[in-house]
């Protein structure tokens, strides 16, 4: 019981930028917490909020959706679309009492390995403080 809580994070990273950023972080040996599991998607605009809900359902404590910086999306506006839908989804999470920081949207380019590492570290710290997500009656 006294072990520190280690959150589980699902990372949904766009193939063109954020996934490259994670790769760069690895290649450059930037340290980041091992709490994240990464799934590559073609674009942040591909991420259906259902993926996030299913991740929470399957035991994730947080979900990171990361893609290209505004204006850089390989498919022009996928990231802008992602931003809109997740803003709405975040407000709904809030309504249901799920802290919206459990869902994070970040823009990371393929060269920003350090930034990727920083985003994951920050999110892991935040989730450690929030504790496990409890959607079931304890």
């Amino acid at each position: 019981m006294s072990e520190p809580f280690e959150p589980r994070i699902l990372g949904l990273l766009c193939s063109w930028c954020a996934y490259g950023g994670a790769d760069t972080a690895g290649v450059s040996r930037f340290q980041y917490p091992a709490n994240i599991r990464i799934v590559r998607v073609m674009c942040s605009g591909r991420v259906d909020p259902l993926f996030v809900a299913r991740a929470f359902e399957q035991g994730a404590d947080g979900v990171l959706v990361a893609g290209c910086h505004p204006g850089d999306c390989h498919y022009v506006s996928g990231n802008a679309f992602a931003e809109q839908r997740f803003a709405r989804f975040g407000r709904l999470l809030d309504f249901f009492g799920i802290d919206r920081r459990r869902l994070r949207l970040a823009w990371v380019s393929a060269s920003e390995g350090a930034r990727f590492a920083a985003v994951v570290s920050e999110m892991t710290e935040e989730l450690r403080a929030l504790g496990p997500l409890r959607m079931q009656v304890p």
């Binding site: 809900a53 929470f56 359902e57 709904l92 999470l93 309504f95 249901f96 959607m135 079931q136 009656v137």
Partner: peptide, 18 residues
């Protein structure tokens, strides 16, 4: 009736009908 699945259903349904 997995509680987390029930929760996910209602959360997502709200999103779909927003």
């Amino acid at each position: 009736r997995e509680p987390v699945s029930v929760f996910a259903y209602h959360l997502m349904r709200a999103y779909h009908l927003a």
